[in-house]
Design a binder for these strands. Structure first.
Lengths: 247, 247
DNA sequence: AATACCATGTACGTTACCGCACATAGTGGA
DNA sequence: TCCACTATGTGCGGTAACGTACATGGTATT
């Protein structure tokens, strides 16, 4: 068997997740005893469609995709969640499951919180509730924009957006990700990604090599991306009031 | 000026909205004094992007589209809301606005409830809160599926889905809707809709004439539609537990 | 009844993406 | 060192939807 990469222990504190970090100390203190750190590996499935979720996850340095897989096997990414958010919103929204699947797209850490603990704290109707609901709205924005993007924008633009969303959720400009996997997320052919990525490399915006992608010119990536990236970013910043003005 | 159609007064009771109907009598009684009935006309804009909402709307027999309009004027429908739901979820989710716009797609009635009244009742953390959150999850499902649909399905299939979603929210099989408007919702060319609708008419599934569409064979429409319609319907039924099993 | 407008039909070249087939080149394990 | 595997590159015909242009035929206004 291939030697697993030693779980790069870089972000292991609850505060590495922005939502947990935003909680008042006393709220966080209540949760701490029940928060469990876990390393999530590439490809790991956190939730299967229509199966009751057993816990929420607060990513610290992993990235998780919400994917819908169709009957014929084709797939499409609905949203992506990293250290800015939480997985399993259906637990407090009341549905307990969704028709989509949650797959780890970039290995890393996350804190899990059991279902009961989530509901208990949510039912205090305090800051955690309000924070979770606001985050859920930002997730809604992301999904809505994904719908728009899928309708109107080219693969080239969508790849730019996807890369930006990914590096925003990591601490560095590199990601471990094959074109095949990106194609799965975007719901396009692998060859389409090869072509789009080739153009970006030729432009000097990224470099890549067998599953390792590095973003060289973030600014240019933003220009080449469609407006969807900025719309979601602005709205997310607004909702979770991270610096109302970022310039 | 063209004589406005006399506001067809067909659904004017709060219980004509499924969410209001699901509330316990005492809860509804609290809301009643502040619920205001209004006739919403075709094309009316309920919310503008990024503008604070002033009330929620519970449709009784109108249909409202959540639309995102891009910088270049192109648009795409994100979700559709009728008597099964409520408009303005951002008011209780905490964001107060969204980047999208809400436009009346089919004229009809709705009850509005002022912002403060919504928050007051929501903050009781009772059945209204739970109902609204579950509805919001069903809205999330719809948006997610719209993203998938935009990625993978043909205009033909999407038109079928769109027609089904529309007549589900009306009491009859007819809708007043030009192909131009449908094209705006789907985010495709008007000619594309003409072609798709032409095929459906040739098959005897619908008939239409200058802005009047009638569905003749609902069953066939479901077969011709993509799986997205059924996924959203099943999930919505589950979440708002309207007959857990519908067969 | 005449007219202006609007909804729909149709045609045609263009483009983005698909499906498929196959070539090339790193990489890890035997 | 060799081999098998995986990731990426490339070419080609097919197709769905686009942009544009224009024709036809209802409907409302005068």
């Amino acid at each position: 068997m291939k030697t697993a990469h030693p779980p790069t222990v870089s972000a292991i504190r609850p505060e590495d997740n922005h939502l947990l970090a935003a909680l008042a100390p006393c709220t966080l203190a209540r949760l701490l005893p029940r928060l469990k750190f876990a390393h999530l590996s590439l490809g790991q499935v956190l939730y299967e469609p229509d199966v009751e979720m057993r816990q929420v996850y607060f990513p610290t340095d992993c990235i998780v995709s919400l994917l819908y897989v169709m009957q014929d096997g084709a797939s499409a990414e609905i949203a992506v969640v990293g250290n800015e958010g939480v997985l399993g919103v259906s637990l407090f929204m009341g549905g307990e499951s969704t028709p989509s699947r949650a797959v780890v797209q970039s290995a890393g850490g996350a804190f899990s919180l059991p279902r009961l603990a989530v509901k208990e704290e949510f039912n205090r109707h305090g800051e955690l509730m309000h924070l979770m609901l606001r985050y859920t709205q930002s997730l809604i924005t992301q999904m809505a924009q994904t719908a728009v993007c899928n309708r109107h924008h080219t693969v080239d633009q969508q790849l730019c957006r996807w890369l930006l969303m990914s590096i925003d959720r990591l601490s560095c400009n590199r990601l471990l990700m094959t074109q095949e996997l990106i194609a799965n997320m975007l719901g396009v052919r692998r060859e389409g990604v090869t072509e789009a990525a080739g153009k970006l490399q030729k432009l000097g915006v990224i470099t890549y090599k067998r599953g390792k992608i590095e973003v060289l010119d973030r600014g240019r990536l933003e220009v080449l991306s469609c407006e969807c990236y900025a719309v979601v970013k602005r709205e997310t910043d607004r909702l979770l009031n991270r610096k109302p003005r970022q310039h």
